[in-house]
Design a protein around this nucleic acid. Sequence first.
DNA 1: CTGGGAGTGGGACAAATGTCCCGTTTTATT
DNA 2: AATAAAACGGGACATTTGTCCCACTCCCAG
Lengths: 222, 222
Amino acid sequence: MSHSQDMLRTNTAFLQFVEQLFEDKQAGNAIQLKSFAAGAYLIRQGSIISQVYIIREGITKCYIAEDNGKDYIFEFLGTGEITGELEAINKGACLSNITALTPVTVFTIPHDRFMALLRSYPEFNELLLKVLAARIYQTCIRTSYQQLYPVEYALLRLLSLEASQQTFFAKKDMAAYLGISVRSFNRTLKELREKNILDKEGLNIDLSKEQLEQMIKRFEDA
Amino acid sequence: MSHSQDMLRTNTAFLQFVEQLFEDKQAGNAIQLKSFAAGAYLIRQGSIISQVYIIREGITKCYIAEDNGKDYIFEFLGTGEITGELEAINKGACLSNITALTPVTVFTIPHDRFMALLRSYPEFNELLLKVLAARIYQTCIRTSYQQLYPVEYALLRLLSLEASQQTFFAKKDMAAYLGISVRSFNRTLKELREKNILDKEGLNIDLSKEQLEQMIKRFEDA
DNA sequence: CTGGGAGTGGGACAAATGTCCCGTTTTATT
DNA sequence: AATAAAACGGGACATTTGTCCCACTCCCAG
């Protein structure tokens, strides 16, 4: 099991399993499909929900909105990712907002049914354990990195992730993912351009110079 | 299930369950006790381990050491908390260092046995799910808070947590928990003293003025 | 008792980041 | 095509945080 860093998380194994359940007349009878337009809320922070959602199609962002008007994006969830599971397990109000960045289709499973499925399908239970473990793992790594390195590093890393996944987000969202202002994001980006990045060797970024150059260019052309 | 913010995490339900397993001749035969002196490593970041640890007694800190020499502390784990479980679930190298802040005693369970226990005891499995969910929950809240508010707020919150738990950590550790330098920690503390804190109403800190004053005093006396 | 090492407290300055603001560009809607 | 709304880019300045450094205390091993 690799722990590759992903900005956009996906999980094909999980999706497959849920697809199968959905097809199954018995097990799938409480599972439903639901669609959201780009920009719509799947979940509102602080609300009470009674289903979990598994993304079948599309991309969502998962973020906390603080009282001071700022947002912090934890992750971008794509195909096969589950959300609302914390609330199913711990019975609390929703931790974060989930909104659709693209048109999104999800499977919904009621909480009690979800918990029952975990009990009856050890394989499903194990998939969930892995999802949770992976999230903790990633969150820890990211948080540490963002707290202890200058923004410049986090930004480079972010660009490389974005490039390697060929997905592109709005600056506002990238800034919120880094926990900084858009202004800082722009400024740092500009500095990277000027410094010509290439000499930045010491970074443990798993992306070729070419790809990185391409990423920076994305912000350069007039 | 409450989501109270804890700096020092504990879990009596989990501990009880493991204690019972330990007593049980059958189930407990692979569970062992192990002790560590204050300052010792239970787990080294990047190493490979083959057991999970459940803390029976004592306090540990769980942190990532970055290449640039800085540490980021995720959590302080106390009685009943498990660690090494991510590695059991995902089979990877250790995410973080775990060191003993006080003398520590743990139960150790080999990975394969641990995974088997999860399968044979649904109750145990559920306890673990709750632990993981709670960690994600807490981590998200904390990260967001620390990224989006000035250090002053995070520090106040931290002091209140510390006071409410009656546990006291070294400044170095508190700074590492906040992801800032000791210098910044001191400076902010000083500013709080000067500002007399009390007028700081807008904070959602669940601690009385008296307690907070007491906390600040702790750093004041000469 | 004593010298070294760790922890503490803070001054001075440098670097990073945020806030406010405004002009431009892009995108969506009518 | 015309216009409004949102996103972009960056200047100027304020604030926050880090780095470097030094002096002081405390504690313990020799």
